[in-house]
Amino acid sequence: MNKREYYKIISKYQLYILQETMNQFISLFVVFCAIGRLGADSPLTSEEQEHVKDNLEKIYNSWQRKRPTDKFHNNRDKIFEGLVTTSRTAPFNSDDSKPDQKWDFAGNRKEKRGCGFPKMGDSKSSWTVRIMNADHSSFYGSLIHPQVVLTAAHHISVWEKYKVRAGKWDDKISVLKTMVHPKFDQRNLANNVALLFLAKSFSLDDDINVICLPEQGGIPSPGTECFSSSLVLPIIEFYKCQDQLRTRSGTSLHNTFICAGGKRGVDTCRGDGGAPLACPIGSAHGQRYQLSGIVSWGIDCYQEVPAAYTNVALFRDWIDIQMKAQGLETSVYTAW
């Protein structure tokens, strides 16, 4: 139900309202202001939702005392149900939610963005966040939910306090809880994944969005061009990458990694740890991305040897379980 439909429903009762007290006029005025502020077809924001619901309840209670069988009474449940479903509300308790649909200065509606859609002209950084500890050293992560960051476990210390910045780095939110994968191995960085649960949510807007997660086992094909730290990096076949790493340093590649890169001068390096490797969903021209990898380790930098990235698709089920345990929705980062 959109605002135009609300307007039609409430308009039917204007004659009734004229017979009520000045308080009812004030209540109706608040409802009309909420309906008309952004346009007849626009969704209600969470704040408008509460204003409308409170004032409709006041009007309803007054009418119920005088005429409990009137049409407003019969439509009450429908109206209140519409209030819940019309406004976009985040799957967590937050005052920071914004409507998915926005309007530009010319009054044209912008379609809502789901997970994995970068802002116009963006180098796939809408979901990249900077994670800072008390001494101001930092690393990166990916926003997979307005209140959850996915990053590399080797950067996380249980006794550290972290803050997260997103967008233009102006908004900073404290980390409430960290969760490192129980099978993370500090020696070979196997299962190198961690979740950070924030004290409050980021507001998704033109600068900040969440990235989609692949389904369990949804590994990108070799040759797929992905993005990390503004670089275009092709996915390298696992055994080919393993041979290159062994030849160069004798290092074995654990099966919880994927590889990308291998072109001289084009590589992630020190300081990029935890950053996303974003790969296209479907067509490379579809402009929607999923988090296929997390920057983990490599041999030197900018050499003709691929770097290793945590294979996020192997941890989708684990991530879903942790999210549900915290009462958070998994649909936020689900593209299908």
Score class of each variant (00 low, 15 high):
Tyr16Pro: 03
Gln242Arg: 11
Arg165Lys: 12
Ser252Asn: 15
Thr178Gly: 07
His136Gln: 09
Lys124Ser: 06
Ser11Lys: 15
Val295Ser: 03
Cys115Thr: 07
Val158Cys: 01
His254Ser: 05
Arg246Thr: 05
Leu189Met: 03
Thr89Cys: 02
Ala90Trp: 10
Arg88Leu: 05
Gly327His: 03
Lys200Phe: 00
Ser157Glu: 10
Trp127Glu: 01
Pro182His: 10
Trp63Ala: 00
Pro146Val: 09
Tyr140Ala: 00
Ile319His: 08
Gly36Met: 09
Met120Arg: 14
Ala278Gly: 03
Lys58Met: 04
Leu277Trp: 14
Pro220Val: 13
Lys124Pro: 07
Trp159Ala: 00
Val305Trp: 13
Tyr60His: 13
Pro276His: 13
Gln242Cys: 00
Ile79Thr: 14
Ala194Thr: 05
Val210Tyr: 09
Arg113Asp: 02
Gly327Val: 00
Gln287Met: 05
Arg130His: 06
Gln64Glu: 04
Asp272Pro: 12
Val52Gln: 04
Tyr333Thr: 07
Asp206Tyr: 11
Pro222Val: 05
Glu225Leu: 01
Val175Met: 04
Phe117Gly: 00
Leu15Ile: 07
Phe105Met: 02
Tyr302Asp: 09
Arg316Tyr: 09
Arg264Ile: 13
Ile17Pro: 04
Arg37Gly: 03
Gly265Asp: 05
Ser142Asn: 06
Ile144Met: 04
Gly262Pro: 14
Gly262Val: 09
Phe32Ile: 01
Thr247Gln: 02
Asp185Arg: 11
Thr310Pro: 08
Ala308Phe: 10
Arg113Cys: 01
Ala199Cys: 03
Leu56Val: 13
Lys161Thr: 10
Ile258Phe: 08
Ile294Asp: 01
Lys124Glu: 05
Leu150Trp: 11
Gly217His: 12
Asn74Ala: 11
Gly167Lys: 15
Phe184Leu: 00
Lys58Gln: 10
Tyr162Lys: 06
Glu215Tyr: 14
Gln24Tyr: 14
Ser230Val: 01
Arg37Ser: 11
Tyr7Val: 02
Leu328Val: 03
Phe105Thr: 04
Lys66Glu: 06
Ala284Tyr: 12
Glu329Asp: 11
Trp103Cys: 00
Leu204Ser: 06
Lys168Thr: 14
Asp95Arg: 15
Lys102Trp: 03
Gly274Trp: 11
Arg270Gly: 05
Asn133Met: 10
Gln14Arg: 15
Ile59Ser: 08
Met22His: 15
Leu245Trp: 14
Ile10Asn: 04
Lys183Gln: 06
Ile10Phe: 09
Lys98Phe: 06
Ala90Tyr: 14
Glu329Thr: 09
Gln242Glu: 02
Leu38Val: 05
Lys183Cys: 00
Phe117Asp: 00
Ser252Ala: 11
Gln24Arg: 15
Asp41Met: 10
Pro118Cys: 01
Leu233Arg: 11
Ala134Val: 09
Asp317Lys: 10
Leu328Asn: 10
Leu38Glu: 06
Asp243Arg: 08
Arg76Phe: 12
Phe117His: 02
Ala166His: 10
Ala284Lys: 07
Ala166Ile: 03
Ala90Asp: 09
Leu195Gly: 11
